[in-house]
Amino acid sequence: MRTFIDALNSRVLLTDGDIKPALNKLDLDMQRFGFGHEDCDVALNITRPDVIAAIHRDYLEAGADVIRTHTRNASPDVLEKYGMQDEVFIINHLAAETACQAVDALPGGNRRRFVLGVVDQSASVGDNPVLRNDAYRQVQGLVSGGVDAVSFKTLPNLEQARSQLASARHALLELGASVPLLLEYSEDLEFTDDTVADLTDGVYFVESSETIKAGYPVPQTGQKILVHGGKTPADTAVIDRKLRSSAGDGFRPATRPNVSPLEKVIPVSSWIDYSSVKAV
């Protein structure tokens, strides 16, 4: 079975879109489902996983290869604002579990899709022991929930970033997990190459979906590339068709020159029968 790294190293993969716009369209009583906090939407991972799962499924049906967990605001420092810092593990675990169940629930034919656990600690506060403990708890929750990889957005301070990433790596080792730890590229980070190479399995870049819709080519430099889905599932379906139209084999553009259209690895990443999707 192809791993997330295998697919990311050879193909451009399409992610889902953001969950918040979809949530904003729903008439949810966030005072009730957010444990008294109208803006604590990560609490829905506990109270309304069915809502999160339905959004995941919409993006999968639109053509997303990668579903990201609803955990960008599920770091301990953010949850502390709501008095929910003790729920870090369970929120991240349930978010990962919900995303995995959404992927498993939809027939994919020969298609291989992935769940990316999202950790955003770029605004975290505290000394190094606090940062290490926070990273450890969040990564353990995501990995125990079944993610295929972990995406880490860390502090721009190199020493603190290494502390966070080292703790994330320790969490993986303690679980005996071979889940790759990837650093999300940011212009604010000046250490996305050799400085943290020993702590991560690579750096990935997020390509703007707008450039894809406009017809610009995806970079073909061998970088690990994810294309961000649209604001809605319908927008994501447009991007999906645009990507596939630029691929020689109808799947996804290749990111290295030696990828054959008749690739022997099964299942081929991103394959699905789109006959039911109307052309734009």
Rank of each mutant, 00 (worst) to 15 (best):
K81Q: 14
L182A: 11
A214H: 12
I19G: 05
D240P: 03
S246N: 12
V103D: 02
D39A: 14
S275F: 00
T98S: 04
V277E: 15
T154C: 09
P76H: 00
L13F: 05
V118F: 07
F114W: 05
A247M: 09
D240H: 07
P233D: 03
V179W: 03
E38C: 03
F205V: 15
E174W: 00
E263G: 08
E174D: 15
D16F: 02
T69C: 06
Q31S: 09
G34D: 12
N9M: 08
I55T: 13
G222A: 05
P129H: 10
R137Y: 02
V227P: 13
V259W: 02
P49E: 07
A254I: 03
E38G: 13
R68P: 03
G202N: 14
T71S: 12
S208F: 02
S275R: 08
A105N: 01
I5W: 02
D39K: 09
Y204P: 15
D134E: 11
V150E: 02
R132W: 04
P76N: 08
S178P: 06
D134S: 15
G146C: 06
S124T: 09
L131D: 10
A123M: 06
D58I: 04
P219L: 02
I19T: 12
Q85A: 11
E184S: 08
I46K: 13
D148R: 12
G230E: 12
D27R: 15
E210T: 15
E80W: 05
K20S: 14
E38A: 15
Y185E: 07
S270L: 01
N45Y: 07
S122W: 05
Q223K: 09
H93M: 08
R162N: 00
E210H: 15
D127L: 07
I55A: 10
F4Q: 13
P21C: 06
P107W: 01
S245Y: 04
V179L: 04
I19K: 08
A237C: 08
K20C: 09
A135N: 07
I239S: 06
H70Y: 08
C40Y: 14
R11E: 05
L13W: 03
S260A: 05
A22R: 11
N92K: 07
G109N: 04
D240W: 06
A102R: 03
A74R: 09
R162I: 00
G126E: 08
T255Q: 03
V179G: 06
D240L: 00
R137S: 13
G34K: 10
D27L: 10
N24T: 12
T200W: 01
R11G: 03
V277P: 02
E190M: 04
F251Q: 12
G141K: 04
E38V: 04
V115E: 02
G17Q: 06
A53Y: 04
A53H: 08
G250R: 10
V277I: 11
F191G: 03
H228T: 05
A95E: 05
I19L: 11
R169T: 04
Q220V: 00
P129A: 12
A123Y: 03
V203S: 09
I90R: 10
A102W: 03
D65N: 14
